[in-house]
Design a protein around this nucleic acid. Sequence first.
DNA 1: CTGAAAGCGCTTACAG
DNA 2: CTGAAAGCGCTTACAG
Lengths: 355, 355
Amino acid sequence: MPKNPRLKPAASPVLRSTADFARHVGLARTTVSRVINGQPGLKQKTIDRVQRALAETGFTPNAHALHLKGKRTAMVGICMEDLLTPPAVRKLATLQRLLRDRGFSSLIEVFTPGTGRDVVRHFLSMRVEAVVFIGHFHREEIEARIAELIAHGTPHLVIDHYGLKNANTVSLDRSAAMVALMNHLLDLGHRSFGLLGIARAPASRYDRMTGINAALRARGLDFTTATLSLDHLHERRNDFDYGRKLAASFLAQPHRPTVFLALNDAIAIGALRGLQDAGLKVPRDISLAGFNNQDISSMTSPTLTTIDQNIEATIATAADILLAQLDVPPRAKPLVHVVAPALVVRESTGPARVA
Amino acid sequence: MPKNPRLKPAASPVLRSTADFARHVGLARTTVSRVINGQPGLKQKTIDRVQRALAETGFTPNAHALHLKGKRTAMVGICMEDLLTPPAVRKLATLQRLLRDRGFSSLIEVFTPGTGRDVVRHFLSMRVEAVVFIGHFHREEIEARIAELIAHGTPHLVIDHYGLKNANTVSLDRSAAMVALMNHLLDLGHRSFGLLGIARAPASRYDRMTGINAALRARGLDFTTATLSLDHLHERRNDFDYGRKLAASFLAQPHRPTVFLALNDAIAIGALRGLQDAGLKVPRDISLAGFNNQDISSMTSPTLTTIDQNIEATIATAADILLAQLDVPPRAKPLVHVVAPALVVRESTGPARVA
DNA sequence: CTGAAAGCGCTTACAG
DNA sequence: CTGAAAGCGCTTACAG
């Protein structure tokens, strides 16, 4: 092995094709191909010779040529809404690992508004065997992409965006999550709920709003009088700082809810900081709940009551559903799977403070 | 357009090749190819006809065939140490975005111990134009991979692992980071330092230990008496919980340092929780510093003194270095770039408590 | 302006 | 047991 390969490129010219390689070993391309693919009926001596040269030169057959010849690409395209929110990244990491374990490599792209078409086109041109979407997307854009995939006969799966037309989906029952959380809070005496970053209008039967509404109705409470949202006062960011600002705005109001329900743990932790900055104690003065059960939620003071998405199980299911679609005629009806969440009660929720 | 494409596959058979497509439009493959590649000298009417059919059918040329014909793959392989630590993911997200902006797609794989060979082989078989490693790897394994890439004439870059033989690297000057932090703490009167998750032996001139040593020596202090590490008492995890456990172990010791230096923000925040659980106030009773300046570090109570890696600038530099290697003869000497960190002083560090 | 032919790097019948 | 030939889906000279 040369000491500095950069200075002696001539010593071992790069072998670019089986033709190059076969010439180098002194055999026919066919023979080389057979050894590489482990086909029977070769002299052990020939096999050894090729294997040794393979190891020495590090020659790798061109995957593109293999795929042209009909070998499956074993690639899955993954469209991410973003690579910044911890739960989304954790889903990606889990899915990537599961796919890798089953021999698939992942082509990962971020699907920013307007680029969806190009991303899916790129996946199709790479002849991926399936496409996964992780996140919540612009409805019409993703539905158009899915129609395109269906027309091409390429299986798809959407993780986290329930209610898309003709789409195979795996998504969390956020309604059930909120029912569980609301019941916990209602039992603690809470009747006035501040919503942090949670959209007002119910969008589907598995949305948070649906659950909040249902839980209130079941106790004979009215949504409009029981909830308050100040989301419109700040630029939407869904991060710590947004939560902190929202908390500050609530404290500037005359009427203060007895509990905050946050869209995610980041907003909840930001709100916690905002409340503590104002000298309030959680949960003595006000209760607080997050969503996602990120690791950090058990490290704050107080620790955070939150919802666990059960990501490992969700993604395992998703991988199964996805791979089951391969090599099988497409289903007539889309497959819709809903995952149950788990309420995690910690220190940040307590009895409602009597006004 | 059919209402439900799944039920009428016969209505629009999937077009798999330019031959299929050309037949569908009633033209020669050559002509279709020329339209797709925007070559001159075609009747506008022909161009329109092809474009329309392209839009209607959603036909996408097979990328593998294109690459076989010599078209560049415009792919970059990215090897990640893991997809779980926030700074690593942020680097990945930033790099992926920059590469995409310049027309490259990213093939992302997690490089777990022992899989390095397969990962790099896969990248080579896909004929990626360059390979990036993000993280800190098993030294011999990554050096072998880099030698392989060099032998294949494929450019590479390692982000975050300084001191690899013959490797192009971009890495943070962690030594300078620790010097800045130590000087800040020494000025506050600290003389006894608890190290949380920070390796004891200096590994290179840009390592944390090098900086800690240098800062102590400059004040005439002895490393052995000035620092204490209890890392060995718990299973290494580098997460919140590891920090919490380490803090508890320190509190069980007879002699308590006046400040904790943590490997990262997660360990620092876990330690903060551990200290608070024991009824201690930070920084009144003990000071605490993290590393990475994650968003969360400005939301804790107290907010965390930490080090900013300046990830955006680092990755921008990395992308420039990487892409500059393309279409250019390989450099004789490896390129080694070191990035300067920034100390971020917040509430968690204060004057040393007098014993 | 359009089409038939060669060739990219492979594998797979088919001959020897 | 090994090798020459065809063909996967493209593009690019080269003819018409």
